[in-house]
Each structure stands twice: as C-alpha cells, then as structure tokens.
Write a protein that binds this DNA or RNA. Structure first.
Lengths: 222, 222
DNA sequence: CATTCAGCCGACCGGTGGGCCGGTCGAATC
DNA sequence: GATTCGACCGGCCCACCGGTCGGCTGAATG
C-alpha cells in the first residue's frame, strides 16, 4: 500500500526514464531543461528551487515533476546531453579523418564551441557532478571516461605516428582537457575572442607551447 | 542586550572576524577547517551538515558556531587560506628570480603541490566559490584576480624578454591555469606520479607543446 | 575565594523546499 | 457520447538543517 518502494528498477543507467512524451510534451521537457540549466548556472544547483524552474518555464511545480522524477534527474539529463554532444562530435571527426593531430584539434574546437553554445550546461557538467546521487554519478562517469579514453587513445596514436612526442599520454590528455575545459571559467560568448580563436590558440599552445622559437630545442628542463 | 546585532562591521573583507582565539582555541579552529574541507570534498558543500563537521571534530555543533559565524564563513576561510598560500609562494619566487620562465615554472609547481598537499581545499576553491554570499564572493575574487594578474604579468614580461612568443597573454595564462588547476580533477596524492612530475610535465607542455621535434616549425595551423 | 572569560554544549526552533496527492481539462479514439 | 490518457496544477506535508539560546565548566587573574 503505502510502501515507499525505494528502487523498483535498479536501472537508471542509460535511458532517461519517465515521461514517454508526446510531441509537444517533448518541447516542454526541453524548455524545463533549458530553464534549469540557466538557473543552475546563475544561482547554483541548490539555490535553484524547483519552483523557480517551473516559474521560468511558466508552469506549475507539479508539472516539472511530471517530466522529471526528481530534481537531480534534471541535473543528470543536462549532464547527459552535454556528454552525448561531445561523443557525437568526436564520432563525426573520426569518420572524416585519421590524423591524430586533426582529431585533437577538433576536440579542442568542440569543447570550446560547446562552452560557447551552452554556457549554462557546462558549469552543471563540471561543478554539480557530485550533486548527483551515487548511481547516477556512476553511470555519468562511464560516458565521461569513454570520451576521455578516446582522446587519450588519439594522443597515443599520435605518438606512435611520430607526430606527438613520447610522454605520459594520460597527463598529456588531461593537459588538453584542462586548458579547454577551464575556458568555461573565463570565456564569455560575445567577448573579445570568438570560440574559434580561443580553441585555435589553446590548441597551438598544446601542440607547440608558448615558448618563443628562439629557445625551442632548449626544452622544458631549464 | 539581546539585540541580534546583525552586522556592526561592514567589513568581512580581509580579517576572518569572529573568535579572537586563545592558543588552543586556534587549534580547534584549524581542526574545524580541516574537517570541513575534507567533508566538503567528499560530500559537497550542501550535503555536509554543520553537525557532521562538529561530529568529525568531536565537538558539539554549537562549538562550531563558536568559531565561525556561519557555515559559509568556514567556506570562505578555506578559500582564503588557499589563495593566501599561493600568493605567499609567488612572492617567495619573485624574490628569488626575475626570469619569467622560472616564475611560470614555479607557479605550475606551486599549484600542483598545493593540490597534492590539501586536496580537499582545492575543490572548495574551485567548485564552491559561488556558494559564498555575494560580499564574500567579491572579496574572495579580489585576491583571486590579483594572483591571476601577477601570473599574466609574468607571461607578458616573458614576451617582452623574447623568451615567450607573442600572443594573447590572457589566453596563455588561462591555458596555464587550466592545465594546472584541472589537476585536482585527476591527480591523486600517492598515485603513479608525484606532484613534481606532474607539474614538470605540464610546464613542459605549456612551454614547448606536445608536438614531436620533427614537426616543430610547422606550427599549429596545419 | 570571587570574578571573569573562553571553550564548550544540549536542547530547541523555524523556514525552506523537495516531492506528492488528488484532481481537472481537452483532445483523440472507437 | 463514453472512454482514455497525457498535460497540467493548487495545495499540502514534513524532514531536515542552519542557526540560536542559555547555561555549564575550569583555568587564569586579582
């Protein structure tokens, strides 16, 4: 009867679940996601109440719960959308080229472009990951790790091809991610630089460093 | 008498306020800070209750409030400690050398070393900044900006000296910060690499890039 | 030995906000 | 025109947690 029914399905992994959705309902769902992402970005996850999300969409709070089982499911959906976007872009790139350097260049471009396109979503992705309940965190991490693994593999391939110097591929890939992901902290759409300019510059640094040509060959161990 | 006295001093800026502290009390304060940082790191700011902090220290919740006016004051203190540490290390470096390259190298080292030393504090610094109330955020940002400005200035000096190639110093400095700061996401003390190894590798990438010597001169615009 | 003051705490409170209940409405469908 | 089903919502509940209050203790201080 009034049994709480803790977790009938131990499968929140891939499918978003809840809300099979009928046409226009899908739009509402997207609206809620967008409103939530914006608010999470502006106020942070906790200061954003579900009522505020509803208000921004122009519906009642209960409607939000018609589309999402819980507040953190919204968070998860935003997260998922972002990483799926990156994975899709990666696939498109590797279908077009095998060159590791080009792949890495595309990765930098994709990340900064996505930061430009959906600024709100990015902060969610990076800062509110741990607000997810453990199971959701786990299944989110799977995709995340997949993407990181793909990029690291591309870098490793570059080393085998002789276009990237031998070094720890893990550190190298995290250096790339660091530079690009960090852009969400300072890059602002409509600012002085376009996202293409930013990713080009970051990629150039990643590939060739900031050192002047004059001291190239001197290496890092000064 | 029983006047709440909301905020007699509109000056939360620098001084931590509250708790002048007498000897052993200062230790308690540090213990609370440490416990809070650890819990914030593990659970996140909001899931960490002040009761949990107290319990970890082995005192009552009210004791925590004897040392800190509010939960977010603890957050601020952690933040402040971290940035003060970085600024002090920077000062020490610039007293020892004028070489921009060496300064940048030290910055990378300092950041990763601090991540190694106080892993809990770092996440607080980067992820819970916006949990601070506006005024505290503002005064925290001042120090943050100062540090960033110092590093950017060093990089700019390097360009003037001809040891760093001309480019947007802002992007360059954020690339450096990105690489180093991001380490808190993946670097684990006691892992395969020491923090020195990590910062050396990151600095090498920042200065010379990952490209193999074979294609140097080809530049980034492939 | 009286006073003071920091350290410390048990017990309490009140607001907040996630989440649910029980429903209405309107458009398909048969 | 009866049935169904998804979109939608007003109103409510209640656990939880930040923060406070009033008071105890013991070591200095005089």
């Amino acid at each position: 009867m009034t049994i709480p029914a803790p977790a009938p399905l131990p499968d929140p992994s891939s499918a978003p679940r809840q809300a099979p959705l009928t046409a226009s309902g899908e739009m509402r769902r997207a609206e809620i996601l967008e409103a939530a992402a914006t608010l999470f970005d502006e106020l942070g996850f906790h200061r954003t109440t579900t009522a505020a999300i509803a208000e921004r969409v122009g519906t009642a709070k209960a409607t939000v719960y018609h589309y999402f089982r819980a507040k953190h499911d919204i968070l998860y959906a935003i997260h998922d959308e972002w990483i799926d976007g990156l994975l899709a872009l990666f696939d498109a790139t590797t279908e077009a080229t095998d060159d590791p350097v080009q792949i890495v260049r595309s990765v930098a471009h994709d990340i900064v472009a996505l930061i430009d396109e959906k600024p709100g979503h990015v902060r969610v992705f990076f800062e509110y990951f741990r607000e997810l309940p453990p199971e959701l965190q786990k299944s989110a991490k799977v995709k995340r790790d997949r993407y990181e693994g793909l990029v690291e593999a591309a870098i490793l391939q570059g080393m085998k091809d002789g276009v990237i110097a031998w070094q720890d591929p893990r550190t190298a890939s995290f250096a790339l991610f660091g530079m690009c992901n960090w852009a969400y902290q300072w890059y602002r759409p409509g600012g002085k630089l376009t996202h293409e300019e930013v990713s080009d510059q970051l990629f150039a640094i990643f590939l060739s460093g900031v050192g002047s040509r004059a001291l190239l060959g001197r290496g890092a161990d000064a």
